[in-house]
Nucleic acid binder design. Structure first.
Lengths: 217, 217, 217, 217
DNA sequence: CATGAATGAGCCTTCATTCAT
DNA sequence: CATGAATGAAGGCTCATTCAT
């Protein structure tokens, strides 16, 4: 666990190799989802991928490396989605967007994250556990937080906000947001029609200055 | 995984047996913490517990049953702590407590939860995954939510709050609270001196009526 | 298998002990029938018998000893039945019985044997295997053969028979008889309404002198 | 026991694999003969075969599957021998064969069956028990019976026989024959010099019409 | 490079048997 | 004598990984 190589063994240069690697990853994802981590053995992966075990070990030094690759793939895809969703909020533009809209956008971005390969995501997060991939998750959270912090520093936002440490606030928001979205019982909560609105409220209120309610205008 | 017996196999009647069971549970906890779930084999548990494998299987039908027992123990202890902490807030008392204090109490209660065997708690939640223990976690969350909802309905609280569905709000709070406390990167966040205060703020603001800031009184 | 004690450990003198032994034997029989030899463990036997394992080992030196005891019980009961059934044929009586009737009686005796605890009998014979109890089975076959030989030597019988070695003929008959009764597919054959009659015929013809058919009289 | 896979797991494609499978089967046969079914563990088999347990499980899903394979092998070989031996009796030929010769041939065929791996045969039949392989044994018996019935229907045979149901008679003969050959104490009986002749007699008499003895010619 | 046969440590579990209470 | 907790050898089986072809 400590001294094990977890990175891919060699970058596949030929096209055929690329196909092989892809097949292995897909097979692993399927098996993970269908039968869980424990039953996802290298032999089974190879078989499902239509490849020999030997080939598998040509590209991955060990079983966990495959899972890690999958994890990274997923993380990158999710980050991409998140960053794309958030992009608008950061673009310089002529007219102002009210804070509440910005927050709504942020929340939408986090929510969008859940749509990326949800099954795989779930199994990876819950069964494999992110403990083993702390770095990745850290990076993930870090980048999200930075993005949010940047958004919070946007002049348009600042105007409506009370004075606070953008970094810290971003952490709170991201953390709370993910908690709500990925915690136990999240399914039920998210399904509630009031959910999105209330989550916006939660965060907006937190950011706004005291004594200046939303509807006060 | 689905039809496996997970309950304890037979209750230890003699005192000696009780000691054995206890040793097994402790050994398992230690191994889980030190080496993770995957390396915690029944043989190792038995060895560490200074007991034979046979004894282990006399009280637990299989490895997971031990982990489940541990999980239940922990969950019960945590619930106990939480409920004890929250108890005051629910007691009828002569003078009013301001909402912010109530929230602070709530948060304190959730935080207190983290002090119960934190290492074991982490490994159990993260590596073993609560997916397999949905019922327990559900119960846990349910009870916490109910408690919070009850607190929110307290006349003293109502006075300072905007009109909202106590149950829903409780869900949001509990969920967000746990997210902040148990999510990735929680350690760092919690360590921040501003943390507790800000979390209070987050929730208080959410509950208070618009246009009525905290310091406005 | 070779140096293992197989006899009962000590004769139970007290009444209570006798009851215990009986309970153990019954429990074993039930378990053998219901779950087969492999799943019939001493612990299970003890439990089913409502006795502690320790007590079990008070009366039997090891597991197989119980099975052996059961086997012996059964063998003795079957022999008893066989001998009782055959008894008449051997009694000196005033009037002659025709050979065919004698044979019919013999066959009836062998058939009667099947009615003694058929389930236990089957499991003991098929799963446990009589290889391990050769002596008993030998004795069994021996006695049956002797009995039949004695019957064949009866003057009444001799009259209708061709000259042959009674011992050898008895062996053939007993052996063939048991083959028909306990071999594979016996069930189907025995169920056939013609069966008993034809079996009589088979043997009678064998015993009668050439050229003197049954119906010639 | 009921839902266990008993068929071979995967067919050996390479020559090396074929050798392995063969070694496993042989080792199992040896162990079965020398130490009995209960002591024939997969580990021992692998060891004796000079192969790793893993290899064993690559070709057989579990221990019993090996035994079953052995059983099938044996059954097929025996059937082959039986059918070959009986073949002549069925061939259309110019001159008649007397019934007694036909029966003699039949008995010879059944006896020949005993020469095929007698030790393995014995252990498989007696200790493992044919109960678990009912289908195979059934097929075995079925085919033998059919063959005999066919022989009985041969015009040459019919001429010397009384009228009877060929199928039923075949069942009786086969069953009795196997009983005599495979029952307890068969060894001794078969060793007797009179045995074969008498067995012929037993069956011939049974088939011939009443009142027409053998020597009547 | 691909293949798939082979490996063997190690896991989970059972069970006959002993022995302190 | 009875009890039942404890033992630990042994069995069945899996699976990550290697290596000859």
């Amino acid at each position: 666990m400590s001294d094990k190589e977890l990175g891919p063994r060699k970058a596949p240069r030929q096209k055929r190799a690329q196909v092989t690697v892809e097949a292995i990853l897909q097979a692993t994802a399927q098996l993970l989802i269908q039968h869980g981590y424990r039953k996802t053995s290298t032999n089974r992966i190879a078989q499902r991928a239509g490849v020999s075990v030997g080939s598998l070990y040509q590209y991955f030094p060990n079983r966990d490396a495959i899972v890690v690759a999958l994890f990274e793939d997923l993380a990158h895809k999710q980050m991409q989605v998140f960053e794309d969703s958030v992009a608008d909020l950061l673009e310089p533009r002529g007219r102002e967007i009210p804070l509440s809209d910005a927050v709504r956008g942020l929340i939408g971005a986090i929510l969008a994250t859940r749509t990326v390969e949800p099954d795989l995501s779930r199994i990876l997060l819950e069964e494999v556990g992110w403990t083993e991939h702390v770095n990745l998750v850290d990076e993930w959270t870090q980048r999200a937080t930075t993005l949010v912090a940047t958004a919070l520093r946007h002049p348009d936002a600042q105007e409506e906000m009370r004075a606070l440490d953008a970094d810290f606030a971003a952490s709170m928001i991201v953390q709370a947001g993910f908690g709500v979205l990925y915690g136990p019982r999240s399914e039920a909560l998210i399904a509630d029609p009031r959910f999105e609105e209330e989550l916006c409220l939660l965060i907006t209120c937190y950011l706004k200055p005291r004594g200046a309610g939303e509807g006060t205008s």
